[in-house]
Design a protein around this nucleic acid. Sequence first.
DNA 1: AATTATGTAAACAAAAGGTTAACCCTGATA
DNA 2: TATCAGGGTTAACCTTTTGTTTACATAATT
Lengths: 229, 229
Amino acid sequence: MDEVKILIVDDEKDILEFVGYNLENEGYIVKKASNGHQAIELNHSFKPDIIILDVMMPDLDGIETCYQIKQEISTNNPKIIFLTARSEDYSEISGLEAGADDYITKPVRPRVLLSRIKAILRRGAQNEENKPKVSYGEFTIDWDKYIVIKNSEARTLPRKEMELFGLLFSSPGKVFDRETIMKRVWGSEVVVGDRTIDVHIRKLREKFGENYFETVKGVGYKFVSPDNV
Amino acid sequence: MDEVKILIVDDEKDILEFVGYNLENEGYIVKKASNGHQAIELNHSFKPDIIILDVMMPDLDGIETCYQIKQEISTNNPKIIFLTARSEDYSEISGLEAGADDYITKPVRPRVLLSRIKAILRRGAQNEENKPKVSYGEFTIDWDKYIVIKNSEARTLPRKEMELFGLLFSSPGKVFDRETIMKRVWGSEVVVGDRTIDVHIRKLREKFGENYFETVKGVGYKFVSPDNV
DNA sequence: AATTATGTAAACAAAAGGTTAACCCTGATA
DNA sequence: TATCAGGGTTAACCTTTTGTTTACATAATT
């Protein structure tokens, strides 16, 4: 991983500038968001490796934002560093639960921040050896190579198809309702028409066969492996 | 859970008013108690989903109150958020021991409080997703996969049939009267003809056999498992 | 027997989902 | 810069499934 992308989220412009400047100086690719919604949005499009997230923000606070981001199925699995003022009354409990990977208290000291970032990247590098490759029935999904293998025949899927497949595949047999699919694949911010999910299911069926993606009318869809039940 | 009930407990009237106002504004159903005894009392009668509990109270303090409430066996299992003044020397430890679910330090900031409440509700909702897989006699119902298994033969039912089955199956042998069935499966607002339930019972009988859904004339229906009684 | 509650089949209505093709981006390519 | 291609989305229309009612038959209860 040579190009490390970092997203900074804070409602105070000064901090965005200050932290952004320091990180860019170190050669990271930086984008900034000034609220939670923007952050979720940018997590999609920018796909940062690390998100530095202010806890205390109006409207959608850091904890909430973190939750939502962690929910989503996506290729980037961003690490999240919380930024909290020592005086704030957000307890660490909620932060850890929300899936924070580290904490930093304001005021931000560049040296500290950089060392935390490096620590996280180091940790990440180690994990990367655990290729997230999961098999079930005749299928294998390999997020690393971004392919789905069916009976030793590999194919690359477009992002949304991959994510939709990934979600359903993550719990074979379990029905995911449309709302959940929407939230986890498209994100809670995005609003798209109701036929969109169907169309993507169609594409998956075209590629893998009609029998793997079962419709449960009025509820949602599930992945099943006929030979494997 | 659409109607969320919250109980606020504090000996300072101002705080009760302030917090209460903000929560009501968000559509929560709110009751207030000004001491621990009242709180325990209201936990019984009001059955709140969440209790916001001041730690520092005369006589019966928050920790004690929390203990007592957690002790009780009741249908509502209220989540408890502690309210502590930063200066107080109640350590978080005692709070966690007492069974707190979260902390907030005074002064209470509405945004913070609301986001914590949402977080707690979300946690609760997630747990609810793991609807258990229940077996009785030759039947198993699996809400996750949305199937009913009879003698190792699985089938997915349409929504209403599933819900009707689920209801009757939830208490084998117990008679559910039509009114209850209506309310629980169709909802209290919906009005449908009186043959509708019968027709759905018919469908279940067609699918699983005539002997499992017994009519109790003038009352309602019950699920029975002949081999199992 | 009369009355009332339930059973049933078939018709009907309305959701829910399926399908296809066109459209709009965005990023790549010449 | 113009063009192009792929992915993603929408729109329109089609099909199927599910849910409800109707109309009448049957069984139980008084």
